[in-house]
């Protein structure tokens, strides 16, 4: 019972906690504080002025638009993919599971390059698209494609283990009771995964709004037209407009904080529905 023999007590524990805290402050909290202090370096009026710039408004609008299209798409894709993988057996299933992770393992820059190679003027479909007057690269469709690709895994990764753990018992019960496919999904499957789904959507959204690499390649950096917030921030910073850059950056930082708070709230209140413990209820 001697406390110094217990792994969780004593001086070592205090040192470890201090180290972790120090790390957190130095690498996360201080930079976050710097973002806001730089943004307000010239006062509130300059802050509002920076946000009032037409290019800034365009960048914010574009980011919201891209996320508003990419996130619902990936929510549907993620649901379908997770449903297939968790509830059915089919050849190539493990391959599909691996492919879903591809956007996580590939550098976002390469994801962007792929779209330029395919749809750019020199790309495979470039001449065809040009002949029909369709612009994908250096335009909104390219930004959406790149964002969808990069944020694809978030919803699916969150749902697959949850749905696998829950099994197919409740769905089968619903089918025998006469529910149609849609009723099974809406009344049984969806309620069982709702908090996990929300969690995945939250992370997906944060990434969709913050994505830089892939979007940078396909954007073409036409200010006011194809610059999303992260790209606009970089352009301002490179133009020595620190207040403008950090002002827009502060919006992204706030998005991150809101995401974090919601995430913590979900984890605190619906831990059972988010983690693998969910199925224990049904097994008793």
């Amino acid at each position: 019972m001697a406390p110094e023999h217990h792994p969780g007590t004593g001086a070592g524990r205090i040192v470890l906690i201090l180290l972790a805290g120090l790390f957190l402050v130095a690498f996360l909290l201080v930079p976050l504080a710097v973002v806001f202090s730089e943004a307000f370096a010239k006062g509130g009026a300059a802050y509002l002025d920076a946000l009032g710039q037409p290019d800034a408004r365009a960048a914010i609008g574009l980011t919201l638009l891209v996320a508003a299209i990419a996130v619902p798409l990936n929510t549907v894709f993620g649901l379908v993919a997770a449903w297939c993988i968790a509830k059915f057996e089919f050849p190539g299933k493990s391959l599909l599971t691996t492919v879903i992770d591809l956007p996580f393992s590939v550098s976002p820059v390469i994801s962007g390059m792929v779209y330029v190679l395919m749809f750019g003027l020199q790309g495979y479909f470039g001449p065809f698209l040009a002949a029909h007057g369709i612009k994908i690269v250096f335009a909104l469709p390219g930004l959406i494609l790149a964002t969808v690709f990069v944020t694809f895994p978030f919803v699916a990764r969150q749902l697959i283990p949850l749905m696998q753990q829950q099994g197919t018992g409740e769905e089968e019960a619903a089918i025998v009771l006469g529910a149609s496919g849609w009723q099974v999904f809406r009344r049984v499957t969806l309620p069982n995964i709702r908090w996990g789904l929300l969690y995945g959507v939250l992370l997906c959204n944060a990434r969709a709004m913050g994505e830089f690499g892939a979007v940078s390649v396909v954007s073409g950096h036409i200010r006011g037209l194809t610059d999303t917030m992260p790209l606009y921030i970089e352009a301002l910073y490179n133009g020595y407009d620190a207040v403008g850059a950090f002002t827009v950056a502060s919006l992204l930082a706030m998005l991150a904080l809101v995401t974090l708070v919601l995430k913590a709230f979900l984890e605190m209140n619906y831990r059972d529905d988010l983690t693998l413990a969910a199925a224990q209820v049904s097994r008793h």
Binding site: A173, V176, L177, N192
Partner: peptide, 29 residues
Amino acid sequence: PPRERKIGFVFQNYALFRHLRVFDNVAFG
């Protein structure tokens, strides 16, 4: 299809709808 076979099925682990109250479990069909 199962729903037209006029059967009731009691599963080994019951497969009750965990997010529904007992009333709504029974009312589901």
